[in-house]
Design a protein around this nucleic acid. Sequence first.
DNA 1: TCCCGCCTCCCCCGTTCGGTGGATGTTTGG
DNA 2: CCAAACATCCACCGAACGGGGGAGGCGGGA
Lengths: 206, 206
Amino acid sequence: MVRLVIVDDHPVVRGGLRDTFADAEDIVVVGEAGDGAEGIERAATLAADVVLMDLRMPGMDGVAATAALRERVPSARVLILTTFDSESDVLPAIEAGATGYLLKDALPDELMRAVRAAARGESVLAPSVTQHLMGQVRKSGASTLTDREKEVLQLVANGSSNREAAAALFIGEASIKTHLLHIYDKLGVRDRAAAVAEGYRRRLLR
Amino acid sequence: MVRLVIVDDHPVVRGGLRDTFADAEDIVVVGEAGDGAEGIERAATLAADVVLMDLRMPGMDGVAATAALRERVPSARVLILTTFDSESDVLPAIEAGATGYLLKDALPDELMRAVRAAARGESVLAPSVTQHLMGQVRKSGASTLTDREKEVLQLVANGSSNREAAAALFIGEASIKTHLLHIYDKLGVRDRAAAVAEGYRRRLLR
DNA sequence: TCCCGCCTCCCCCGTTCGGTGGATGTTTGG
DNA sequence: CCAAACATCCACCGAACGGGGGAGGCGGGA
């Protein structure tokens, strides 16, 4: 069951979204908020799995709210839902830690699939957004594991302790620890077990 | 001298098998039967040491016949002889008490060795069957993860510490540790990270 | 009926991890 | 050419974990 929080400053939009997800048996809207700060509170206290966030809001905007939310509740995925696919917003949102970026003209069915995908940690982008992203990405790759980090994560997934991983890679144990800390940071987790899980969810591991 | 009973619904197959064992000085075919019920009778009255049993038969099938035979004549060993190594049949047959599981394309020499081995109570499996069995065992090993254990593993994959998992399940931390030790044992790993990895590989986690 | 698997909990101990706060050398791309 | 990212290491500490013992209750199958 995916616990969803809706953050949008328009009551009408919130109502429409709520109705949309009323049909889904595996998604429950546990809370709503009218601005970013409130949304963060709701997401934290209600243990949200996914937060559907509007970008244009009074007070704290969606990007800032996303960043703050990722900080406060690392387990919550943020799905940006906005009217325009202005490229100026996409990158900041992704960099802030958004898991997906959808347009408000998305069909209900698409929305639900996106929420489910986000809950699994998969990135969801509106097709038109993908275009923009493909062109410009791969430089800001803020949350991409380096080859070395992937090697370390793979070893850990295979049951290696830090010491064993170090031996396998012919480096010091301290380096393994450093790599792991970087991995935790990038994946938004706090221990090796969750990192491995996230690695599988993001298809970094097999 | 091994007293052998052949149970198969095809007279041709029975004939072929009879011929096969005609050469063996230490094996004597004391009886034949065309279906399961008859096979049990023959095995009982003829004091069979080994029963060579087809799986696909009209009336009582090989698996049921094997179980019934083990019940009636515990001293008789059952060797399953079938055309297909369909994995769905291997496990039930073994569970029913079959001592071995052979394919009909086995060479006469192999057949005789298998019968002798079965008479000694040794388990005999066709090589290709072993493959399937390993897969099944692995799969069933996976499914022998208790519901509770799966819950624990899921929580750990989601980043919970033992304490947090305990709180989430309303049980003590010690119980989480016990569950995890059982999980490690079943999955053949030594720490939570590897357990999570194995969980994903075996599709216990998503 | 009795035994086995499951779930729950306990103690104790050594080891490993995660977090902090650095440092240095190398590669790479604007 | 220089900043940024990467990879490598150091020391220290508290918390968490893994492993070794049990043990009691409970329900279902032989």
